[in-house]
Simulated scan of single mutants.
Amino acid sequence: MSDLSVRPATVQDRPTVERLWLMFRHDLSGFMGVLPGPDGTFRGERVDSAFTEAGWAPYLFRRADRPVGFAFVRGLDGPARVLNSFFVVRGARREGIGGTAVREVVLRHPGRWEVAFQYANEPAVRFWRHVAARLAPDAWSEETRPVPGRPDLAPDAWISFVS
């Protein structure tokens, strides 16, 4: 995909990533039943963490000159990298952008990886299983884990592999 760019997001990219974040959270609200706050936005602590905390890295995906998605990686200073948040805009889905972007992000940080998703998000279930099978054929695992401090939520699904 020659017109796709996957690169670390800069401070100058933050407003673009914040707008993409709202789309991401809006998509997830359909699976999680979360409403925006009184100001019409969703919680943004992960955006803050991705741009300010050690061990985190934000990425921006562009197709030609248009933003089409982002990823937040955490755990870069620990034993496992966690793909904390990952999003591709609806108008760019089903074109291979997501798989290409994941591969490029993972290749920048070799080692053990973990990705969480919710079983209620069926497209995410199919996508992450497909990605794991392509990145680590016969060498990935899937398990459920409770959401820390949130016994009211369904457990998350986690896929693990080594790149």
Rank of each mutant, 00 (worst) to 15 (best):
I97G: 02
W56E: 05
F127M: 00
V82N: 05
G78C: 00
R126F: 07
A132M: 08
P58S: 08
A133S: 15
A136T: 11
R63C: 12
V68C: 15
E122I: 09
R62A: 10
L60Y: 01
M32K: 06
H109I: 06
A50Y: 06
F72H: 11
A57I: 00
S49F: 08
V115W: 02
G37W: 03
V102D: 02
A64C: 05
A57K: 10
A71F: 11
S29R: 05
L107M: 08
D77H: 08
F127N: 04
A133P: 06
E45M: 04
A71E: 12
S85Y: 02
F31W: 14
L28I: 14
T52V: 09
L28K: 12
G111W: 07
S85K: 00
E114A: 07
V106H: 02
G69W: 05
G111D: 13
V47Y: 06
G96R: 12
T41D: 11
T41S: 13
E114N: 03
V88S: 00
V68W: 05
V102E: 01
L135I: 10
H109L: 04
N84A: 15
G98L: 00
F70G: 03
A139S: 13
V68P: 07
G78P: 03
A120G: 11
A57Y: 03
T52C: 03
V82M: 05
G44I: 06
R103A: 15
V73Q: 10
E114Y: 00
P123G: 03
G37N: 08
S85D: 15
G44C: 10
R134M: 06
G40Y: 06
G99Q: 12
E53I: 02
V102I: 09
F127Y: 11
V34R: 10
V73M: 05
G40H: 08
R66W: 07
D77R: 04
M32N: 13
V125R: 05
P38A: 13
R90D: 15
A136V: 10
P123M: 01
A132S: 14
R103F: 09
G37L: 00
P137H: 10
F127G: 04
R63I: 10
F87R: 01
G30H: 15
R63M: 13
R90I: 03
H26M: 09
L107N: 10
F24G: 03
I97R: 00
A139H: 14
V131T: 15
G111S: 07
E104Q: 15
H26S: 14
S29P: 12
F86P: 10
L28F: 13
D27Q: 12
Y119Q: 13
A120I: 07
P123C: 01
A124R: 01
T100D: 06
A54L: 13
S85C: 04
M32V: 12
G37D: 14
P67K: 05
E95F: 02
G98A: 08
L107E: 15
L60Q: 00
F72P: 01
D39Y: 11
L107H: 12
R90T: 12
H130Y: 02
L107W: 08
E45A: 05
P67T: 08
G37R: 11
A50L: 04
W56H: 11
V82L: 07
V106G: 00
S49C: 03
H26C: 09
L28H: 14
R126N: 09
G44M: 06
E122F: 01
G30I: 09
H26Y: 15
R25S: 09
T41Y: 10
G99N: 01
A80L: 06
V106W: 00
R94E: 13
M32Q: 14
R129L: 13
H130M: 02
W113N: 04
E104P: 05
